[in-house]
Every structure is written in structure tokens, then in C-alpha cells.
Amino acid sequence: MTRLGQAGIGIVVPVVFFSLWWVLSEGSTSPYFPPLRRTLAAFLEIWFFSRFFTDLLPSVGHFLSGLAIGVVAGVVVGTLMGLLPRFSRDVSPMTEFVRAIPTAALVPLGLILFGTGFVMETFLISLAVFFPILVSTTAGVRGVDPVYLEVARSYGLSFADRLWHVIIPAAAPQILAGCRVAIAFGLAATVIANMVASGSGLGFFIVDAQTSFRLPDMWAGLIMIGLLGYLANTAFVLVEHRLLGWHRGWRGATQAARAA
């Protein structure tokens, strides 16, 4: 089956779903479930372009920055944890502890440390992104087949070379799998960071619409978040294909690389 064919099949379910939604909601009088028609009208009107620059772009900016920082930090610390068991043992209690705290509870802390605005939101988003990447990188680095390392060592490769050319590529499927999870967490953090300390942004827009009972607007915001997530995810799949096409453990039946 061609890739186009696969993509075609994948569209079927969403199309069916949206059609059902449209039809079922058309006569709706419930204020909380407006007809899809109204929601889509609101969607087009808001995002193209009345709120595009004030709310969407800044949030996307925060999200991408937080993603970048979180990924880099997660890979670095995760590699350390994977290579140095002692480091991992010592630091794990702290990381597991912080990981168990919901982002929403950390907003006041971020507020005190960084005020409102770009730095605070990016901080919270990178924190949310950091943990899944940390966990999957650690697993990926730990799972590198020792045979590769011994061969590399016996060839006299320096540590830097071993790291860059053997360990990281071998761990890459895991890391990328963690990135997929991180996208979801990062998007959630983008919404949450906006919800309580802001005046603009995607999360703020949704909460503002909800508290003012502009329900079509709220739904339009939710759809936009889903769309952003989908786009981010698709971008990642493309990156994955490019970067990992060669990876023996990844091709073929083992979509295990997307194991997260």
C-alpha cells in the first residue's frame, strides 16, 4: 500500500467523525454544545486573523521555545543518567518527585521566579517537556547494545566520538518516541501557563471564552489546540522518517520506536 493510500485511509475516521458531529449538533440548543457550523464560523473568524497575532503566534512561540529547551535539556541530562548509573540513582528521587507535581501547581512558583510573560511560560513548558524526554533518553541510552560500545572502544574511538556517533544514534528511536509524548505535555503546559497568569495566548483565550460563556469561541480554541498538536506530531513523524530510516531496529514491523 502506498503512502498516499495509507494517508487516505487515515482520513476516513476524522471525516466520518466530523460529519457526525456536524449533523448531530445542527439542531442543538444547548449553550454548551453549539452547532458545529457556528463553531467553525467562529474558528475561521478568530484565527484568520483577528486573534492570530495577539494570541496564537505568541503561544506557538512559547511552545516552540519551551520544546526546544526542554528537548535539549532532557537529552543532555538523560544521556548523563543513562551513562552514569550512580548519577541516575542519586538524582532520580528528585526528578521523579518534581515530575509528579502538576504544572498548574507550579505556576505560582514560576510567577515569583520569573514574573509574567515569555520567560515564565517558556520555563513551565520546558519543564513539562523535560521529563518525558529525560525518561526516554535514559532508557534509550541504557538500552544501547553493549556490543556496539565495545566495538567502538576497540576501534579506539574517543568518548566524544562514541557519544555522538554511536550512543546518541542508537538511542534515537527512544528519544524521538519521547518527543512525541513531550509534544502533548508541552501543549498542555502552554494552555495551563496561559490560564492563570496572562492576558493573551491560546490558553487564556480558551479560559476567557469559557468564563464569559462564549462557547463557540471556546470550542474554536480547543480545535485549534488539537490542530497544533496534530501539526507538531506530523512534523515529528517526518523528522523521524528522515533521521531514522537507516535504523535497523526501527524499520519494518517494529513501530516499537513509537513506543511512547
Binding site: 505560582p108 515569583i112 487564556f204
Partner: peptide, 18 residues
């Protein structure tokens, strides 16, 4: 400029110059 801050966090924000 009006900034939305959750009410319990407002005193801290004022104290810390946010």
C-alpha cells in the same frame, strides 16, 4: 497594562515587582 494574575498570587506579584 492590565495583566491577569490568579488572585492568591497577586500580593506576591506586587511584592516582587511583577
Amino acid at each position: 497594562t492590565f495583566t491577569l494574575i490568579s488572585p492568591p498570587d497577586l500580593p506576591a506579584s506586587l511584592r516582587n515587582g511583577v
